[in-house]
Amino acid sequence: MADVDQAMKEAAMAKEAGAGRRTPDRDPAGQAQGGTHSGARADRIFRFCARGAGILILLALAAVTLFLILKAFPAFIGDGGQRSKAIESLSGGRASGFWQYVGPLVFGTVLIAGLALLMAFPVAVGIALFISHYAPARLSTALSYVVDLLAAIPSVVYGLWGALVLVPHITGFWGWVARHLGWIPLFAGPAAAPARSVATVALVLAVMILPIITSVTRDIFLQAPRLQQEAALALGATKWEMIRLAVLPFGRSGIISASMLGLGRALGETMAVLMILSPGFSYALRLLRPSTSQTIAANIASQFPEADSTGVALLVATGLVLFIITFLVNYMARRITTKAGA
């Protein structure tokens, strides 16, 4: 850890020292080797390959878009009657147009992912602070591993755990919440029994995105300027005040982009939602009731096996919508970080 920091500092200093370091390299070097043509050619080929790999990534994203559009095409163009019949069959007669079908799904996706972020965010920042500023140095490396362990557990295992362990255990708690906070429309009862509701799924997703947000924010907190922190402490600031004044503002853009990353992850999570949620098809904001919302990803996994060719096209089209949403979220995260950094 310390070595990486050291190396990063070195790199940063070197960047400052020799901003023009890359200019005097290639051609003189090639000539100095005694004008070996093979060396120059290898150089060119390698350069071409590296550039090609970069361009390949652009092409891969273009290909994703292209093939999804290609496969989703029949969902937009073609026999209108057959199309609306396919939508009616997929939605159990609840919708007949594409936007009517995808609307509640988008709502459900955003609602569940947003809730997960809301739950994960404070805890993640807390853990990151605990690791970076509270725990003793040796403990904090161990804790970092533990957090990364959370990230390593496959989503299907979270799905199993959520469906078989969490749901029976949390049913009583959500029932209690519905009884005592039911006057808030959001928590209006009756709570689902078993608790296969939006609230439970969001909780599991929060656990899943927690390590992502934590690891990014932790790295940023560790990089907060030491001097200012020490100055703050020296001036009599309490530890929390020091964090509020010298650490959090420094990590602000990082925290935001980390949560956007977590949000992107929650938006696309499939298995846990598929195995836990009792899906519904509405715009209802009732977190504890069953059968109110469904996410796009889980809907694809759920309906794909039984879909005919028009149905598959429709599901791919909803996948395209999900792709666009996550694209926007990630793009925004990127914009926030670059803006703050510029």
């Binding site: 990534i57 891969a60 994203l61 290909a63 994703v64 093939f67 999804l68 496969k71 990353l261 992107g264 992850r265 938006l267 696309g268 999570e269 499939t270 990803a297 694809i300 996994a301 599901l315 791919v316 996948g319 999900l322 792709f323 996550t326 694209f327 979220v329 990630n330 793009y331 995260a333 990127r334």
Partner: peptide, 14 residues
């Protein structure tokens, strides 16, 4: 950066 957020099911559909 954007690619790192592609939902896995979209990758499967692709």
């Amino acid at each position: 950066d954007v690619m790192s957020g592609i939902p896995s099911i979209v990758a499967g559909l692709f």
